[in-house]
Amino acid sequence: MAVSYVPATFEEAVRIRRETGAVPVAGGTDLMVRYRSPAGTLPDFPWPVMFISGLKEMKGLFLEGAELVIKAGTELAVIEHSEIVHPVLREAVRQMAAPALRNLGTLSGNICNASPAGDAVCVLYALGAEVELTSSSRMRRMPIEHFITGPGRTVLKDDELMTAVRIPLHSDSASFYRKVGTRKANALSKLSCTGFITVTENRIVDMRLALGAVGPMVVRSAELESQCIGMDLNQFSNFKPDLRKQYAELVTPIDDQRSTAEYRKETTLNLIDEFFMLIEKELS
C-alpha cells in the first residue's frame, strides 16, 4: 500500500517531494481514476503520493507582464470562467469533461498527465505556453513541448513540482478550435485542432496550428508555420496544397477504443482545411 502525505504548506510539499519523491495529486481526476480499485479499497498507487489540492499558495491566476500565470493548483472551472484567459483556452476547458470534474481538475495535472489527447494541452502548445518547475533548490521554466517527451512522459524531476503554467499574451486576427469527442459532453477527445492566425496589411505575421490525438504527442510544426510568414492571399493559396500534404505527414494517429486511425486522419485534415479557409478569409 502506497504511503500518502498531506502537506500543510507549499514548503512542506517541496520538502516531501525532495525526501520521498511522492507524486503530487491535485484534482485527482486522472490519478484517482487510473489507479482506482474496487469499492471499499484504497487506490492502487504504485508510488508514494501527496495531496496538494488544499494548498492555497498553489492557486490563482493573474497577469504578469506579457504573461498570464495560472498557478498549478487552479481548478479548470476557475480558468473557464476567468475573463483574463484567452477565449480559445476557455472554450477548450469548457469542453472538457463535465462541471463536477472541472471543479476538481487542474491544467497542470493535465500537462503532467502528458496525454496526446489532452484538449487544453493542445491549445497550450499553440499559445506557446511554458511550465514553471520548482524544487527546494531551484526554479526553472521551459516550453511545454520540451516538458512533454512522450505519451505519459515528462522531464519533471523527482524533486520538482510544477508550480505554474505561463502563457504569453497572444493577440490574433482569428482563431480556430475544434474538439471531436466521443459524444457531445462529458467526453474524451478523439482528436482536436487549434489554430491562430494574425494578419497585418493582408500578410500573415503569425500562424500557429496544433493537433491533438493524432500522434504520440501534440503535433505543432514551427518549421511549417514559419514558411507561411509574410505570405499574402495569393501566395498562401498556392502554398496550401503543399502545406496540407506536409501536415498530413505529421498526422500519424492510431486505432483505439475511441476511434480509428483512418477517421482521425481524415477528420484532422478536414479541420486543417477549414482553418486554411479561415486564413484565406483573413487575408482577403
Partner: peptide, 18 residues
C-alpha cells in the same frame, strides 16, 4: 465540496482536510 459540485469517488480524503 466548498459549495462546488464534485464526484466523491475521485476525491481523496487527503483533499478533504479543512
Amino acid at each position: 465540496k466548498d459549495g462546488k459540485l464534485v464526484n466523491s469517488c475521485i476525491v481523496p480524503m487527503g483533499s478533504v482536510d479543512g
